[in-house]
Amino acid sequence: MSSKSFNVLLIGCGNMAAGFDLSHETEMPRTHASGYAKHGGFNLAACVEPDVDRRIETAKKWNIPLQFENTNQINEYKDAFDVISICSPTDLHLEHIKIAISLKPKVIFCEKPLTASLHESKKMIDLCNSNNISLAVNYSRYWDPSVNELAELIKQNYWGEIRSVVAHYNKGILNNGGHMIGLLQQLLGELKIISARNVYNDLCEDDPTVLALLNSIEGIPIYLNPTHASDYSYFEFEIFFSRGVIRMLNGGLSWQTQTPICHDQFTGYRKLSAPKVIDGKYFLSMSLAINNIYEHLANSQTLVCTGESALIIQKMCESIKITAAHTNV
């Protein structure tokens, strides 16, 4: 049990707020509610959710004493919450961030993307800063130990030179594509757009799933390959190094490596070894994000993924989207 306790308000009780841990009881939390509850340093004080069954189920599961149907009912609770988690649909984020700021929390923890508009995201970041409110955004791979370990190996040149990267995603360039762009930026740094075009809208009309060719600053080619969300969820990438291949599989739940070996059929040639698959550490991400917020509050630890981090991701997503739209004209 942590020595200090901070009060939390959940705005929205959907999948990322609570739902994934209502349907599957797991040791490692996948949602905001379970993350706060398992940490021990937070008190789930209130939740807001218009769906009555979902609201009651969430409150019952985590013993949340205050439950509200809409955000109009929480206006009188200024200074009552240290942390406000915003887990509502993206098109409500702007409204809910403004309401959260008016309640004067110490931290807002918002699901990605921050808002649907780059301009509005920038305004919300500025508003948080002017009100001395810390802003964290849940691009979850920023807290994924497997991703951070790979980033360190890349810095150490452990796998040699990067020859190319192929990344697969669906559900829109801003929605799930933002996760991939953020992940690629973590590993490779700043990205540049070579070309892009719209392929289809498999989530919503204003967020196309885009085919794109990118480059890192060092000139590493990166292929952003779309798949269709109506077929299945798909979020994977493969990096081709001079000393082998690394693949993130199933959204980071597992990782695969192959290294060059002498070919057993063709003298003088090399081939890749049989794949070695290990479990990923993605399910640690929510616990680490919540602990990062706790340490930020208790000991001034730097937040790993801030509003500014999210803005960099959103700028690249918007640039890809604009480039694709011009190509399709």
Rank of each mutant, 00 (worst) to 15 (best):
V245A: 02
G182R: 00
H326F: 04
L297Y: 12
N175L: 10
L203G: 07
H168D: 12
V83K: 09
N63Y: 07
K281V: 08
F109V: 14
S309E: 08
N138W: 10
P221I: 02
N75G: 11
F20K: 15
S121L: 02
D21S: 04
L22S: 01
G182I: 02
V83P: 03
L253N: 13
P29A: 00
E295K: 04
I320M: 10
H263R: 06
F241R: 01
D207H: 05
I194T: 15
A37D: 14
V83S: 00
T115H: 05
V52K: 15
V8R: 02
Y169R: 01
V137W: 03
Y142A: 14
S34E: 14
T209I: 03
A37L: 08
I220H: 06
P65C: 01
V107Q: 04
S300R: 15
A37K: 05
L114E: 01
E25V: 09
A45N: 03
K4S: 11
A100E: 00
A325Q: 15
F20T: 15
L253V: 06
A37Y: 12
L44F: 08
K321D: 07
L92R: 06
K123A: 14
I99L: 09
H119P: 00
A37R: 01
S216P: 08
T26D: 15
A212Q: 11
A229E: 10
K192Y: 07
G182T: 00
M316P: 05
A151V: 14
M316R: 09
D21N: 08
Y169N: 01
R197E: 12
E95C: 05
Y234S: 11
W159S: 11
D79L: 04
F283G: 00
K122F: 03
T90P: 02
T58Y: 06
H39I: 06
L44N: 09
P208E: 02
H168E: 15
K171G: 03
A100R: 01
S117L: 07
C110V: 13
L94I: 08
Y36N: 02
A100S: 09
E238I: 06
A18V: 10
D264S: 14
A325C: 11
D79P: 08
L214C: 08
T323P: 03
Y223F: 13
D279C: 13
S300M: 10
I246T: 13
Q256M: 15
H296P: 05
F283V: 08
N292H: 10
E236K: 04
S319H: 13
L183M: 15
I64W: 11
V137R: 09
A136C: 13
S319V: 05
K4W: 01
A324Y: 00
N43Y: 10
N7L: 10
L22I: 11
L303W: 09
N157W: 04
P50Q: 05
G19L: 12
I64C: 04
Q185W: 10
A80R: 09
K122R: 11
V304Y: 05
H168P: 09
